[in-house]
Design a protein around this nucleic acid. Structure first.
Lengths: 251, 251
DNA sequence: CTTGACAGTCTTGTATACAAGATTGTGAGC
DNA sequence: GCTCACAATCTTGTATACAAGACTGTCAAG
């Protein structure tokens, strides 16, 4: 079967959100075309769509890159999420019981993934909570918007090396749902505001985004960073230029 | 000079928002390409971008069409606007004086356009108020989102034959700014909610969107409808099929 | 006169070819 | 050894060619 433009778009997006393609990665049209078994045309279309969604950027005649939002843009993304998500909770009059049940179930799944230590799906699930919320309380249009915004902040979290407090986030989610269950939407909105604020505060936005993040991802597998505490790689310092791990080399 | 993809995108969008291209209009790639003096490729890119922004839609091998949102989608668009715009006003702590001044000036321009009877720019200005607000109080990302949403609701207004209460809308805007000036953001948010509600209520969402809107626009110039009250053309009736006005025929 | 099949035309979907610019590697000059 | 110019290579930007499907109009049959 031939992957359609939408398939390609979705495949790339989910790969990015799952952390398999870190911010700053170059995405060559030809390589992707070969990979998907189609011509550059379709890949280009998918990239174009992802560009309008704020996921990738094109640098003229250099290639497509996964966006690396600046600190300013990061703040904008979080502010926007605060505006919309608190707005949603404050607009809603009452929460149907099946929505509550569904949200509670989602939080339960979150906790389970955290306890199991399933790191890969963890980040996805935490973002999904907000999408789930928009879907249940709002409408498709709003959900789309929040999905793209969440994608953006997820990307930002990868870029600014957050203090990964998955457990705390999940707890926040639980509190928000509890407030909703109590019928106190205003409180839920306040909790949501604080929650997003905490996530943002957990980032080090004063630091420049690490321009070598993608290289490091490729060259320095997690086993290395875990094992070698003598090299805490502060953001701007030289990367290991000559060494490259053979098994991660791709071409 | 060669219009870039962004130029084409903007040109088409503004033509739509100015009402020169009504909802449901078919936009042929080749025609647009000839018009802009470029190849289909660039036009296609622009259309693709507009599609992800929810402005046009492609029907397989039939062509691109300016979207005609369903009643359901219309409600979603207005709900989304309510969520975001009230959310914005409630998130903001205080309004800088220069922002107030700028907004007041905008409202003044609105009133002037209404008094002058400048119909063409009127709708644009009324939508611009909300975009201006987002720009002044929020950030670029939020502004982009609201711009697209406003575009969508503007399109919806065209489609569902609103009771065009430009003066009332402008008055609402004035009230909102007044509440902001008084420092009562909660009141401003409430007024905004009511304002958007009024605009939505002014539409006849129970009626199916007129599938002949675009034809009528082309075949029955306003002079005709003004002169011939004997044909009030209720939404579903037969359109003049065999007759076509020679001067509006295009090929 | 109405209805249905069919061919012709038109329009998008997709691939490919070529042009233009960016990057990288090489070698000469100092 | 270091720097700068230049050529080779690679990648996107744009146009064009062709294929596939949708629509329209014609013509024959009833």
């Amino acid at each position: 079967m031939n992957p359609s433009t939408a398939n390609i778009e979705e495949a790339i997006l989910s790969a990015i959100l799952a952390g398999r393609i870190p911010p700053g990665t170059r995405l060559g049209e030809q390589k992707l075309a070969d990979l998907f078994g189609v011509s550059r045309t379709r890949v280009r279309e998918a990239m174009m769509r992802l560009e309008t969604r704020g996921i990738v950027q094109v640098s003229a005649r250099r290639g497509w890159f996964v966006v690396e939002p600046s600190a300013e843009e990061a703040r904008e993304a979080f502010q926007t999420r605060r505006v919309i998500e608190t707005g949603l909770l404050q607009t809603v009059r009452e929460v149907p019981p099946e929505v509550l049940a569904s949200l509670k179930e989602h939080v339960a799944i979150e906790r389970q993934a955290i306890e199991t230590g399933d790191v890969s799906s963890r980040a996805c699930l935490l973002g999904d909570f907000h999408i789930h919320l928009a879907d249940a309380l709002g409408n498709r249009l709003l959900t789309e918007i929040i999905r793209d915004l969440t994608a953006r902040t997820t990307l930002i979290s990868m870029l600014y090396q957050p203090t990964e407090k998955a457990e705390e986030s999940s707890h926040d989610h639980e509190d928000i749902v509890a407030a909703m269950a109590a019928g106190d939407l205003a409180a839920a909105a306040r909790l949501m505001d604080e929650h997003i604020g905490k996530v943002e505060a957990g980032l080090d936005l004063s630091s420049k985004p690490d321009p070598l993040a993608s290289l490091r991802e490729l060259l320095v597998p997690s086993t290395f960073t875990d094992v070698a505490p003598s090299m805490p790689h502060p953001h701007g310092t030289a990367a290991p230029h000559a060494h490259h791990h053979p098994s991660t080399k791709e071409d």
